[in-house]
Amino acid sequence: MKLFIKNMVCIRCKMVVRDELTKLGVHCIVVELGEAEILETITPEQREEIRSVLLRSGLELMDDKKSMLIQKIKQVIIELVHYSEEPLRVKFSEYLSRQLNYDYTYLANVFSEVQGTTIEKFIISHKIERVKELLVYNELTLSEIAFRMHYSSVSHLSAQFKKVTGLTPSHFKQIKSQRRNMLDEL
């Protein structure tokens, strides 16, 4: 049985979910961003207990199909932007459609309806947060960051970065005082 969990955005979230489910006597097969596959079928009472325990950690057990789909969309975006170093060989819309087995137009409409923003804006906000992280680490040049983050050029990255943050990447790198946002706050 699969449980779909909102606000899971990092490895620590996965560890919290696994630990909390184990404490409740639920056997996890796999815990991924946004979902946990468990061995048992749970009762409505157990579901409420799991919901309550996860809520204390800022996580939310989801029931409706639209919320689950939104979480899956977010999961694909977060994994691609923050954890993948492979270049994307197809348009993102095609990649997302293939990953989730839905038409991109449907995914975009559901996402906008529920989230109040577009998939594109969600992607951009995550890309900019990843760029901030890479700038703070100071291990890559701006050209290398632009390539890694799939920007067509350094100027495209710089323009988008300035539009979102109000700063140029080089100015951001100089001040480093603007704190990065938590992924689940985007």
Rank of each mutant, 00 (worst) to 15 (best):
R12Y: 14
G116R: 03
I11T: 12
V53T: 08
V154A: 04
L96V: 01
L88E: 14
R47L: 06
R98T: 08
H27P: 00
K127P: 00
R148N: 09
Y151R: 07
I128A: 07
E48R: 15
R180V: 10
L135A: 10
H150I: 05
F92I: 13
A108Q: 12
K91W: 10
I11S: 11
A159D: 11
M1I: 10
V114M: 03
T118W: 04
V154D: 08
H27W: 03
I50H: 07
S177Q: 10
S52F: 14
V76Q: 05
R18S: 11
T168G: 08
P87C: 10
V76H: 02
G166I: 04
T168F: 04
Q178F: 05
E35L: 07
K23W: 01
Q174T: 12
L142C: 04
L59V: 07
P44N: 09
K72P: 01
F122S: 04
L59Q: 11
L59F: 04
E144D: 13
C28P: 07
I145A: 08
Q160T: 15
S170W: 03
D184Y: 11
L140C: 02
S143G: 15
A108V: 04
M15P: 00
F122R: 02
E129K: 02
C28W: 04
L3D: 12
K6F: 03
I70D: 02
V16R: 06
K65D: 09
M182N: 10
V30T: 13
S67A: 12
I124L: 15
G25D: 05
A36D: 06
I5N: 13
S152P: 03
D19E: 15
L59K: 11
Q46E: 15
Q46L: 11
Q160N: 10
S93N: 13
S93E: 14
Y151C: 06
S153Q: 10
A146Y: 13
D19I: 04
I5A: 13
E79W: 00
E120N: 13
L69C: 00
H82E: 11
E20L: 07
L134H: 02
S67Y: 11
H171F: 03
V110N: 03
H150K: 11
T118S: 14
M68G: 01
F161R: 10
N181E: 13
Q46F: 02
T22Y: 03
T165H: 06
